[in-house]
Structure formats: structure tokens, C-alpha cells
Nucleic acid binder design. Sequence first.
RNA 1: GGUCCCAUCGUCUAGCGGUCAGGACAUCGGCCUCUCACGCCGAAAACACGGGUUCGAUUCCCGUUGGGAUCACCA
Length: 465
Amino acid sequence: MEQIITRFPPSPTGYLHVGGARTALFNWLYARHTKGKFVLRIEDTDVARSTQASTDAILEALEWLGIDWDEGPYFQSQRSAIYSEYIEKLLSSGQAYYCTCSRDALDAMRQKALEAGGKPKYDGICRNKGLSKSDDAVVRFKAPAAGSTIIKDVVKGNIVIPNAEMDDFIIQRSDGIPTYNLAVVVDDITMGINTVIRGDDHVNNTPKQILLYQALDAPLPTFGHVPMVLGKDRARLSKRHGAMSVTAYRDMGYLPDAFLNYLVRLGWSYGDQEFFTKDELIAKFTLENIGRSPGIFDTDKLLALNAEHIRKSPPAVIAHHLVPFLKQSGCDAGEDEFTQAVIQTLSVRSKTLVEMADGALFYYDGKITYDNKAAKKFLKPVIVEPLNLLIKALEASDSFDEPSLEDAFKTVMNTTGMKLGKIAQPVRVALTGKTVSPGIFEMLVVLGQAKVIARLKDAVKFIED
RNA sequence: GGUCCCAUCGUCUAGCGGUCAGGACAUCGGCCUCUCACGCCGAAAACACGGGUUCGAUUCCCGUUGGGAUCACCA
């Protein structure tokens, strides 16, 4: 079988948003699954709205997601010679023509059609005028007025669109720049793209593109239109539903693999399986399992999945993503063994990296500042004696692993008659400043003998003052 | 409005003619427990409606309703 070549063609008019990321992911996964190629193409024919900053932002987001490309990025703005060549082909074969209708005339035409209850389309008035090139002329494609065009869609099945729906659409603007439909088709032909997975919102111009393929005598790619992502109110996902930008999720402390996992499950399934590593996705992703109905973006589920990925990822991987957050909080952390040990105590109780970083700070702090309420409740004179006993026991101990720590605590429990719970909370506050933290013993081990004893002594002093 | 798409628990979904309609998130109970989590056990929760086809429809067909998309010298 022929090698699968897919593509992702964002237009650089903003950041990479959730919906775009999902179609990029589907194309990327399919290419990786089939050992094919994934091409990145920047569709910047809209000069007025395209910016370099947007391009950079999109590339940055893709890199964070781990979606890499085999070819590109190509820029449509640099390919005008190719488009001209193809437009010329269409012109000389009589499948396209120049049109000099003014925008005002066109607007009036639409207005009139609308009032008459019809569809606002171009009436083809210049079609047989045999106009030649001029400054204000656009190039239109001669679309068939009758019959219908059929899309063989791998996710939706056959879609039949009456050709009457299409008018002689513009393929080259008066400034010489090709329009979207023409540029896409020429690019896909010349780049060898044979699989086009894109959003549902494109089904309506797919027949136009099919007509162009046929006029250009080029083989049709496989089309697949995936349903849109909706917001909570069932309307198409937009800014008012919250974060749209992929990198915003990075900044909120999501793991890229968790985000990918969520995105792919929104509209694709593999039996009952919910959790996927990236490699599993590559191994299991196929077009047949893409759903046909639109899905609502659910941040609760994304959060739950993120928590699961945090729990199941190797500490070294988490460390890589966590360290920037730690540094942002002003702590000098590296992706070292200490940080990884810290992560192991925190991963089961962190839903995001932001949360994890927050819970990790006390490990790195020099001096602990006590939460007021916590100190008031647990750092009281009655606990001074047990704390001193504990300090003694810990100083006497020459190993500092969990069993020996448990022994130390038992000694204190036996001599004071206190239960573990009564001792653990004050110790927790002494070590972390808070009433919530990882388990006492695992935390002590990571913190180490010196820090633990110092902090306990600080606490005793704090109470006595 | 024309055209196109879609329709299973609140949400994501499994199901591909015969199932007690399954799983996950969220919700609500309980267990575990040094805090918080994790984990475990349990509860509640769905086939939009109406016609067909069939011995039998969640499943196939048609219609209704509802939702979405799109109708530019934007992509």
C-alpha cells in the first residue's frame, strides 16, 4: 500500500487552539500509526491577518504537545509561483475565467437573491465574456451548475452535495493571491497529501476542492471530517468557554500527554480504554474508530486524566515538566534525584503540576513559615515533650529509612502514651507549616535527617517563645 | 432561509438485530487511614419522539423534533 501522507495546515492568525490541536493530533497519530509522513504547512495567504507571532506560537504549542513533523513548515506566502502555474492551467483549459464584477455589484447581487428568498451566489455574468487579465480582475472557477458532487468520507460515509450549491467561486483575488480553496488543493497535490483529516466545518468546501482536483486531473485524497469540539452550552468552542489556547493548558499545569489523551478520546474510542500513553495511541489509533457526533469539552475529565498521568508517569518525566513551575516559585530545583524523590511523595495527590509545585515548596525551603491556624491548633506546649523525645530518638538513629523512623515514633508513642495521629499532625506542621502533606514517614525520608531535626527544633523553639 | 452533518446516563463513550444497555469523569454513600490524596466497595443516572422493516429493534429505513456547521476577493 501507498505510504500515508497527512498534514496540518493552520493559518497563523492566532494561537493554536483546542480544536486545531485535535485535528493536528488525529493527522499526526494516523501518520505515525501507518509509518507515513506528517506535513506542516502554514496557510498565510491572508496577509492582513497573518502574523509571525502566531506562527511562532503555533510551533511552540505543537512542540510542547510532542507533535513533530516530517516536512515543513511550508509557507503558502512563499509558493505563489506554483499557484500561478496551476491557475494558468485552469485558465488556458477554459475551466476558469477572469471576472471584473465589483464588490458592490456582488453585494447587491447577494442582497437581491436573499430578498427573493434564494441562495446568494454569483450569477456567472462574466463567465462567457472572454475577459482578459486586468488590475481589478479576479479569477473564477467554472463550477458545474447541475449534478452533484460526492464526498467519500471515512468518518461520515458518503456525503452528497448538489452542485447547485456552489457558484463560480473565486480562485485568485484581484491582488493576485490565490484563495484558500485553490491554494489548499494545489498544495495537497504537490505535497503528495493523500489523507485529509480536518474539522467538520470544512465539509462545505470539500466539494469545491474535489471539483478542482478533477479539473486539474489529480487523484483525490481520502477525506475524513471530524466533528467539532463544543463548549458546555453546546455551541462551538470559543473563548467565552474558557481557555482555548493549548499553551494555556501547559501553564495551568497539564502534562502534554494527558492533554493529548483527553483530546483524542473526545471523538475517538478504543473499546472501554480511557488511559493511553502516547505510544499506545500511536499503536492503536485508526480512522475507523473516530466518532460522528460532536463532543463537549469537559475540563473535569481532562483534570482527572491529568491526575492519572501524573500518577503513572516516571518521576523523571514529571521532573522535566515540573521544574519550570518550581523555578517560577523562586526555588532552585533541578531535575535531579532529590526532585524525583519529592515527586514520588506528591504524585498521588496532585491533579496539576501547579498543585504539585505548590505542595513541593516546603521541601526546598530553608525556614518554614507556619500557617497561622495550623500553628495555633497543633504547635502547643503539650507537644514540646513528645517533640523533644522524637528529636532525641532521631538523633540517636544511625539510619533514616521508613522502618527506623517508625521505630523512633513508636518509642515516643510508648513513653508518652500518645497515638500516632496526635504526634503526626504537630510534626507535619513543624516540617511543612501546613496540616496537609505527603505521608509522614515518606516525607521524613526525602527531607533527610538534618533538615528534619532542624525543623523540629525550630518548632520547639517557636512554641516556647 | 438553502445545503450538509449529528442524536445512548449531566459529560466522554462501548454497542455494529436477541445484552440485567457496559466502562470512564462528575455526583452521592461506605471502607481504608498519620493529614490530604490514592485505592477499594456500593448507589443514582441514558437508548429524543413517531412511523415502518423484522419473530424481535438502541442497532436498519423514513419522518418529526432538537442541536451543530456552512453559505466572503477569511481560512
